[in-house]
Write a protein that binds this DNA or RNA. Structure first.
Lengths: 358, 358
DNA sequence: CAACAATGTGTGAACGTGCACAGATTACGT
DNA sequence: ACGTAATCTGTGCACGTTCACACATTGTTG
């Protein structure tokens, strides 16, 4: 029948149709869920598919549908962060699972240089993707401009305030920070400092805000130590500077576990003990927290879940079912941007103790 | 001319041809590097492209070329490892960069359950990808079977011995282990133990082998402590057990930084100092090494470079230029599998000191 | 100057699918 | 019995490319 030589051609919808004794159109309808397929031809088609081993050709389908079934995963961070930030990996895995379940592909775009920015713009403008998930965009990010201009369905992780209208998936950084700060207040601390990282992003700002709210009248602006990034080394340096300036602090809230781990090592190097002399708490519940000595009390952030939600949200926009998706969830609004906040919780470990009586 | 309403259609090759006053064929030739395009029409085409903002339609191209321009990145590990293993992230970034440079997409397939295995098999068999990069396959892995059966161009990271014929990118674990063990021998250690992780994979076996070679007659089988995985907690537990059994060891080689970090914490908890009482070395040069106190002497492994090489190797196979790619490199052969080994080097830090005179 | 190679160009036929349309069959109410 | 709606099916066209082929022009060689 067919030439038995050569690697063997893939079966097409024609082969299925011939085998099942129906027409292409019917097979196509079978696949696209349009009812109006009789039960007899339905089962004939099913047998034929199994027999010839048919798998729809994505390229042909995408061509006629003017779709790509591809979603971009854009990380605007130094590429090294991929290997260090535990959340990004979790978000990626979550998003990837959800997307492949729905027959979408995920393509990772890491922006690490100006050249990358250009490449990503090209990619977005070139219609290579149906949608995008954006992790850690900065304010005034060029990616944001392209997305709004090209009207690409997108979801942001976090919520930079300049992104009018673009949905986001976040955690409630304010509430989370408030609750972990409360953890310190509850055991009697009053001289609590914060190592406030990433103040150029919403997350950093919100974590500081939550801290301030919890502290209330106890807030001492001198104990706010801003540090550049969410990194170990910035935590180390920041803690050193802070403790030099204000040796009477009894507890430190570091706004990420990496920062907290850095701070913890700095504290130990100064000859102080954790938690007896200084309590330390982090944020993220990453390996940094469990790998520290002692292990750190921290905030658990559902990174996998955020990836899943972001994927769903993006697909919903692509397929025009955003409203149905949003309906059962409680959406909040930041400016014109709708979004959901996933719950976090405190993970108590061994880095918190009451302050020593002086 | 065109309907100004609606989102605006994407320009096609026809539009470029019309604008440049040539035919589709010429424009197509221009894009596919087939010479035989006159300089005059070449520049006319370039102007036209810029004017109409043309970007080739991937789906149409893939359809006619019977290609997908997609490479699978298969990780057969619990998904959590994505967020913990520093190498996987590096390999991913390296591969991703190289592939997008060459107009290929990378799709991540994480195998974390039996259901995932099935999905990946479908994906591979369904012709969704032109090639694959496989990270950490096990022996007798079903993915391997599918790849050989479907004759999908692939590259392995590492080299499980049962993969006849499939190229691999690795590091020379034996040489690397030998050189870091030598580092301990050089300063006078004799009672050196190894925390040998991952003995179900080639990397684990080879690292132990390198250790044994370097130790030579000093090798004491009682000081080989097998541990399950390359993880922090297994390092912790393994070190505890080892030091309980053999309190006279003066140095420990842990076969990954995570294991070494776990061991380091266990050692400290036993009241011993590093490196004064016990020297510790790791393997990977990951954040675990720099985040430890003291920082760990370790082996630097070029994970990003491995990703790049794996991508090149896969693309070369797809495009039939494997021999040219391999030519300038020194290929080694393991069974019938050709591969390259990337160089590693020792990163000296502060976790090694001579043994105390007894 | 004929013959032929090298260079440049246009055209028609695929590639495999979805969709709109038209046609066929059945079911149902009057 | 008839008209009409509901259900089911087949056909042609379009999607935007690439590729093989045919043709046109020029240069080179005997």
């Amino acid at each position: 029948m067919s030439t038995p030589a050569h690697p063997k051609k893939r079966a097409t919808i024609h082969d299925v149709a011939r085998e099942a004794g129906v027409s292409r159109g019917t097979v196509s309808r079978y696949f696209n869920g349009d009812s109006y397929v009789s039960t007899s031809s339905r089962s004939a088609i099913e047998q034929a598919i199994a027999k010839v081993g048919y798998v729809p050709n994505t390229a042909a389908r995408n061509l006629v549908r003017q779709r790509t079934q591809t979603v971009a995963f854009i990380v605007h961070e130094p590429a090294s962060l991929f290997t260090e930030d535990p959340n990004i990996g979790g978000i990626l895995v979550g998003a990837n699972n959800e997307l492949s379940e729905r027959d979408y592909q995920l393509v990772c775009l890491v922006i690490d240089s100006a050249r990358d920015t250009h490449r990503v713009e090209q990619y977005l403008r070139g219609g290579f993707v149906d949608g995008a998930i954006v992790v850690s965009a900065r304010m005034g990010d060029p990616v944001t401009r392209v997305i709004t201009e090209s009207r690409i369905p997108a979801t942001y992780i976090g919520h930079p305030p300049d992104l009018a209208g673009i949905p986001f998936i976040g955690i409630d950084n304010i509430t989370a920070s408030r609750s972990i700060t409360q953890e310190l207040l509850d055991v009697g601390h009053e001289n609590i400092a914060i190592l406030a990282a990433g103040l150029d992003r919403d997350s950093g700002v919100d974590r500081l805000e939550g801290f301030s709210q919890a502290m209330g009248p106890l807030l001492n602006r001198g104990l706010i130590q801003p540090v550049e990034t969410y990194s170990y080394s910035d935590g180390y340096d920041g803690a050193l500077e802070l403790l030099h300036r204000a040796p009477d602090v009894t507890a430190i809230f570091a706004t990420s576990d990496a920062v907290a781990a850095g701070a913890a090592n700095a504290i130990k190097r100064l000859g102080l003990r954790i938690p007896q002399d200084v309590s330390v708490v982090g944020f993220d519940d990453s390996v940094w927290a469990t790998r520290s000595d002692p292990e750190l009390t921290t905030i658990h952030q559902p990174s996998r879940g955020m990836g899943t939600a972001a994927a769903q949200c993006t697909v919903a926009q692509i397929e025009g079912t955003f409203d149905e998706w949003a309906a059962p969830r409680r959406l909040i609004h930041l400016g014109s941007a709708p979004g959901i906040m996933l719950d976090t919780y405190v993970v108590p470990r061994n880095s918190v103790a009451p302050p020593r009586p002086q």
